[in-house]
Amino acid sequence: MSGNTGYAEIATYFRQQIADGTLAPGDKMPTQKQVREQFGASIATVNRAFQMLKAEGLTAARVGQGTTVAERPRVASTATARLRRISRTGRAYGPRERSVDHDARLLSCADSEVADELGIDLHDEILVRRRVYMQGDVRTIASFSFIHPRGWAAVPEILSSEPMGRFWQKDYMERTGRTTVKLPERRGARLAYPYELSMLGVDAPPNAAVPVLVLLNTWHDEDGPLEHWQDVFAPGLYQVDEE
């Protein structure tokens, strides 16, 4: 990347470096002079890119140290960004990221929105897998996967609460010969449910109205919907997609 590079492209480059762990929390960012030389950009363009990264909570300015990668970013990656990172690096987690509280169970689908996403009737049986993503010691995302019966019929391993070694749909495609396609990611806001706040470790008064950001992703194969994701971001965090 060089020559007439815009500030948004420069910010995207470093955002991706941070997401992949090439630049880890606490690492010094290149100087603005180095970035100008790397991208052939003006000082105003580089400065604007750095301001964007700081505003997103990805970097911080330290007296005597210049700009560093934030130790505790106020952001968490989207599901789409996580999948892109896995494709690029083979790593399921970013720097200081992990997942806990894994659970899988067969349930009657009582949520009309989920039933519509999976193309099933209300109260049909589905598999619900859930986990909590953490950044260091901070709970960032309560993540839910709602899976159509075709999923566990082909890949019964997903009935276990144990984390999968890789994205289970790869096994599904290999075993069935079907290709899965993800629809565009959708983003919105709503009030959190009490169990979501509990998963995220949010101590809120009973019946408190706590707004949260929610990302929705749905996969289809040739027979229709297969899996629906809902990622619920902790209050005070916002999502970042490195591209």
Rank of each mutant, 00 (worst) to 15 (best):
N4Y: 06
A8D: 09
T12W: 12
Y13F: 13
Q16S: 09
Q16R: 14
I18K: 02
A19T: 09
D20T: 11
P25W: 01
G26Y: 00
K28Q: 13
T31G: 11
Q32S: 13
Q32L: 13
Q34I: 04
R36L: 02
E37L: 04
F39Y: 01
G40I: 12
N47Q: 11
K54G: 11
K54N: 11
G57P: 01
G57Q: 05
L58I: 05
A60N: 09
A61H: 11
R62Q: 15
V63P: 01
G64Q: 04
V69Q: 04
P73C: 08
T78F: 10
A79D: 07
T80F: 04
R85Y: 01
R85P: 02
R88A: 13
A92N: 02
A92K: 10
R98V: 08
S99W: 03
R105D: 10
S108M: 13
S108T: 12
S112Q: 12
S112N: 08
E113M: 14
V114H: 03
A115D: 07
D116W: 14
L118S: 03
I120Q: 10
E125A: 10
E125H: 09
L127C: 05
R129A: 02
R131Y: 00
V132W: 00
Y133K: 07
Y133Q: 03
Y133P: 11
Y133L: 09
R139L: 07
R139E: 02
T140P: 02
F144G: 01
F144W: 14
W152D: 03
E157D: 13
E157I: 01
E157W: 09
S161C: 03
S161N: 05
S161G: 08
M164E: 12
R166N: 14
E174F: 08
E174M: 13
T179Y: 05
P184T: 01
A189N: 10
L191E: 10
L191Y: 13
A192P: 00
Y193G: 10
P194M: 00
L197R: 07
V202H: 01
V202T: 02
D203M: 04
P206K: 15
V210D: 09
L216S: 13
E222I: 08
P225S: 14
F233R: 05
G236I: 01
Y238E: 14
V240W: 06
V240G: 05
V240Q: 03
V240N: 05
